[in-house]
Design a protein around this nucleic acid. Structure first.
Lengths: 124, 124
DNA sequence: TATCTGTTATACTAAATGTATAACAGATAT
DNA sequence: ATATCTGTTATACATTTAGTATAACAGATA
């Protein structure tokens, strides 16, 4: 498993876990229909509590990245609500880019970084 | 004052306040050398505690957006550490764009939104 | 001297985070 | 049938964070 938790981070463990699973989907390390480890297995592997993993899974379900099946466990299943995704992205980008603009990062430089990151995804 | 706090948000008040002040700098509503209200005045105006404002100001100081002068109070003074700003931006964008990519938002669509937001800044 | 700054200290409540057991209901395999 | 695996829920506890509330300090200013 590719998950790497930073226990000294100010970011909550279940948020780190959620973000890394989403990154895994974006980079095709996790593919549609694929199973995630059970909450108990993943918790033991990382060395955290079952409920912390469950919280991440529940969040991913609510945000449309997982379906939780009692037969198969947690399965990658991305629900595409593109309009809402764009709305959310715009709000988050507004905060990130405001900081960038204050620090003299140009629109062109931002575009370059966006391209870099998208190429991480498209390489898989 | 342009600050608008959402008390039902899951985002901490001092984080909302910090983000809005940074957005204010990016859109030139707040300009280099300009004074912010004193922690006590702004707290009273918003209807929150003085320490919550102080926490936002301390954070903005630590991140290089303010200088806190006992004579003048809080003064906008952006310290440009572009390399660090790019590093931080890249990490944050990785999370935001991974979500976008999973939701079928293309690189081109991301660029359009970046352009939209930068035009908010450059209009002032 | 009185008043304005940011800053620090202390104390309290409420909420969020993470851990720990335990149990439930559906599905699966033996 | 029985045991075992799922996610899920309930309860309890400790720690940390967020926000509020008073109070005081030190430098600057009028």
């Amino acid at each position: 498993m590719f998950v790497q938790i930073d226990f000294n981070s100010d970011e909550a463990i279940y948020i780190q876990l959620r973000n890394q699973i989403i990154y895994g989907i974006a980079t095709s390390q996790l593919q549609e229909g694929e199973n995630l480890p059970s909450v108990r297995d993943l918790a033991e592997h990382i060395g955290i509590n079952m409920h912390t993993v469950n919280k991440a899974y529940a969040m991913l379900k609510q945000e449309g990245y997982l379906k939780l099946d009692r037969r198969k466990g947690a399965v990658i299943a991305v629900d595409i609500d593109k309009l809402q995704a764009i709305r959310e992205m715009r709000e988050e980008l507004r905060v990130v880019l405001a900081r960038a603009f204050c620090k003299n990062i140009s629109c062109e430089e931002a575009h370059e970084i966006v391209n870099d990151i998208f190429s991480e995804f498209e390489r898989g």
